[in-house]
Amino acid sequence: MALPAQLKPIQHHLRTAQEHEKRDPVVAYYCRLYAMQTGMKLDSKTPECRKFLIKLMDQLESMKKELGDNDSISQEVVGNAHIENYALKMFLYADNEDRAGRFHKNMIKSFYSASLLLDVLSVFGELSEENIQHRKYARWKATYIHNCLKNGETPQ
């Protein structure tokens, strides 16, 4: 289903959900939950957004039914730890590549995905100062290295 323009800020979180459907359904579930919560704040009044959000809710309910036995889904505190570990793993991978001077598309994507997953952590409550800093750094690094590679420059 096409994403209405008003809900564009959640498109990358929804794409991350899709990419993790098979690899890590817990990540996919919480990315969609974040998209749902954020989408409702952005616009749940216009018919096209309502229709989109109702479909997204249907999808979340069916995922919960399917994955209900998984502690990371049935207990949000376990889910919180799962998403945080996953985000930090991605961050550390990209950071190691960066420090080793290995700049490539995969590490840019890991920095960016880590920042998106740190956004997702906000469904569990306010982000810690450390996670806010990691998110800011990861997003900045992803943009900076992407621009360097695009312009044929070596990141510093």
Binding site: Q37, M40, R50, L53, L60, E61
Partner: peptide, 27 residues
Amino acid sequence: SSTLASSVASSEQDELSQRLSRLRGQV
């Protein structure tokens, strides 16, 4: 009719919020 449309929208919004709370075991 705009009042009716906005009342339908608001009740659908409530329904979404309720479904979200149920999903998260908050009701």
